[in-house]
Amino acid sequence: MIKEIAKVELPFDETLTIKKHRLQPETVSGKEKRISIVTGIHGDELEGQYVCYELSRRIHAERDMLTGIVDIYPAMNPLGVDSITRGIPMFDLDMNRIFPGNKEGSMAEYVAAEAVSDLAGSDLCIDIHASNIYLKELTQVRISEMTAKELVPIARRLNVDYIWVHQAATVLESTLAHSLNSIGTKTLVVEMGVGMRITKEIGNQLVDGILVVMKDLGIWNGEVITPRTPIESEDGNVHFLNAAASGMFLPATAHCKEVKNGELVGEIVDPLSGKVLQKVYSPCDGLVFTLREFPVVYEGSLVGRILAR
């Protein structure tokens, strides 16, 4: 069933509605476990849209196997998704910096607060992001070191390629994941693919993993895969490659490829003069788990990340 979790009237004959799709067994006892799949906080990240569709499709195909509740929230920021806007249109706000929100606050804060209220109490929440339009990411779960002990074992079951345990940062306390984790609703953040695109392979990979986790929780009784074993690392193993010149970045390697120390990762070139402004080399043997997708770079732009082996 489709439920509305927040509604806001817009000035010109339109209502903004945040919706979720609840899938549950024919009969419920009230003791069922609940998983929530959230995406579309950033309007330019679409990979999660396919995950929502595909998860729903597979559950419908084997409805008898569903033994718990699955809540799917495809668009926390529907105006953003619809208008290819990363933040909330009209407010120029990053929605993932206003959680837990405020029911008495402005429209954006009100919507955030209603979302947190609705998600609170889920046995697990998965917040799916798709990098941005600039960078392509390996399918990964990012976990703050504060919650690593509890969340890493769950993330290992999600069929992702990589688990990145990162340092806690005060600014991230305004995210949905932090807000939910801090009230006891376990929440994993998935980063995958690239903004403004859908990549079916990685979407299917994640759906396979979500079904594994659902089975672990007692929400799904169907056949599931054996999840792949992800690489796990902390910040120290990750090398950032930032542009030292402004120009066009031309990759010399492929995303998710292993490179050697000193191997060429890409070049920054000047289309006007025809000169190479910078050759970007790998600082270590490792995996190119992030690679620049949008070619125009400024000095400082991230062109890749290497996970040292």
Binding site: V8, E9, L10, P11, F12, M90, G105, S106, M107
Partner: peptide, 8 residues
Amino acid sequence: PFILEKTL
């Protein structure tokens, strides 16, 4: 010049 519902 225009305002949404529930807006400051």
